[in-house]
């Protein structure tokens, strides 16, 4: 099912990872070793974002931030975006970040 995300413009890779960071399934322009590394990175980054969001909520008392739904990190040519336990690697010139985040949110609820 997540393979459908590759049909979006500019989506180069999509992965589904387990709560322990292991790769469940991954598709796109990366070999298996790189898919596993992307899954591990996304899992670690997710936990780090969770930790920082918990602290932000704790210090400010503001509702609506924790638990975080997702994150993205934008580089010059590529962006890594994640919602839930899904992560995509996209090309900035071809992909619509809004569309990818929206589709990831939907797919993460399957």
């Amino acid at each position: 099912m997540i393979r459908n995300l590759l049909a979006l413009d500019g989506v180069l890779v999509v992965c589904h990872f387990r709560d322990d960071g292991a790769l469940l399934e991954g598709y796109g322009m990366m070999d298996d070793a790189m898919l596993e590394r992307l899954a591990r990175f996304a899992h670690d980054y997710k936990r780090m974002v969770q930790g920082n969001t918990d602290q932000f909520s704790m210090f400010t008392g503001l509702p609506g931030w924790a638990p975080p739904r997702g994150w993205n990190v934008r580089g010059a040519q590529h962006t890594v975006c994640s919602v839930g336990n899904l992560v995509c690697f996209i090309d900035n010139t071809e992909a619509s970040l809004n569309e990818v985040m929206r589709e990831l949110t939907e797919a993460s609820q399957y």
Partner: peptide, 15 residues
């Protein structure tokens, strides 16, 4: 909460 967050972060960084 703060120490756990930083520990998770350092684990990720060393990985």
């Amino acid at each position: 909460i703060m120490c756990r967050a930083t520990t998770m972060s350092t684990h990720m960084q060393s990985d």
